[in-house]
Design a protein around this nucleic acid. Structure first.
Lengths: 211, 211
DNA sequence: ACCTGAACACCGTTCAAGT
DNA sequence: ACCTGAACACCGTTCAAGT
């Protein structure tokens, strides 16, 4: 667990960044639930107070994790030639990197720091919207509509991850007498393909704003 | 705190429904954070074990709260004459009743029981989509796209509630050198009108599915 | 059957004290 | 300046015991 071999005295020799890095590693390895001050302290071979001294509080630690990870997000190249395609590409990048690091995304969602987390990619989206000719209030509406929608899909997709196997996700639809067609009930009972669904939804939204 | 005057012995005389009702009242009064087994026990003038005996666990209690509140959701009348208008109306009902009981909605979101919570209103939406001529897989895509989008807006709107006053919500946009137009930055820095934004977004999505 | 008292194994956080 | 030991005020949950 201890990463510094040149530890002469009882000083741990760790700084704020080491704490944040270890916390990020912990979350990525064992999920959001594993991030407790006591576990992190054990991982670093120090007391919880050491973390408090360097970081301040659990909230600050989480904010730093998000900021730190935010800087590590690679800015994928925007693809497409038309304005709609390029905006679509920028929007999907937000989805893709969020899904790529699900644990951190979950942490960001649970702590209300999702905006902070994805800001770099959101800037790229805004730039593409400007390139498409949008400005000011008009751009803000498109931007937010896209951001919020992607956020909604992330929420559901990450929840699907968490729920066990093919359990009773759509059981509510089959186990009751709602006046729906059998083929509709069947379709609703199956687990959705969020990836494809987001693509369709995004295209619909983007078409109304840039075109 | 004690609601039963006819309490002869040391028996509390409370059943499962009383626990769930008190828990629901607690959440609506003091928010999700107030729902601890110990606080609920104190509210009912019993020990936590009494709750465990009647309900089982905190997770079961929350599920029952959601189910109980789900039954209390009034089914507002669908408005509009065209298919698009009526689907829009059904979709907005999900948003409206979720916002009307924010605390329970927050609880449902945090515990992954949002689908359970809003299911009655989602059935109404599905029925309107069938009335609009959709069936099976085609309907499921429309249904989910709408549900997930509304969920995303709820997530953001409820978070805006929680965040203090007019603090640094859009500060990230103004405090940096992203190559954006000043009027765009200004627009993005302001707090969004989720209600109006959802209306626009829903119309865009619905238009692509029912026409 | 229904309920209590006491305890277990956790949390985040703080305070006084050490070097 | 940097870190420990011990404690406070909470959690959810369980177990043996009472009536």
């Amino acid at each position: 667990m201890s990463k510094n071999a040149t530890n002469t005295g009882r000083r741990a020799g760790l700084d704020r960044n080491d704490m944040v890095a270890a916390a990020l590693a912990l979350v990525e390895a064992d999920g959001v639930g594993a991030l407790t001050m006591r576990r992190l302290a054990a991982e670093l071979d120090v007391t919880t107070n050491t973390i408090y001294w360097h970081v301040g509080s659990r909230d600050e630690l989480i904010l730093e994790i998000i900021r730190s990870h935010s800087r590590q997000i690679a800015e994928l190249p925007i693809e497409g030639t038309t304005a709609q395609e390029r905006v679509f590409s920028a929007a999907r990048h937000i989805w893709e990197s969020s899904m790529a690091s699900r644990s951190v995304t979950s942490l960001a969602h649970q702590t209300g720091t999702a905006a902070e987390h994805l800001h770099p990619l959101e800037v790229v989206l805004a730039q593409e919207l400007e390139a498409a000719g949008l400005r000011g209030e008009e751009l803000a509406r498109a931007q937010r509509s896209i951001q919020v929608t992607v956020g909604g899909f992330l929420l559901n997709a990450l929840r699907s991850d968490a729920s066990r196997e093919g359990d009773a996700r759509g059981a509510a639809w089959t186990d009751e007498d709602n006046g729906l067609t059998p083929e509709t009930v069947d379709a609703l009972a199956q687990s959705p393909d969020y990836d494809a669904l987001l693509a369709d939804t995004l295209r619909a939204i983007i078409a109304t704003h840039v075109g």
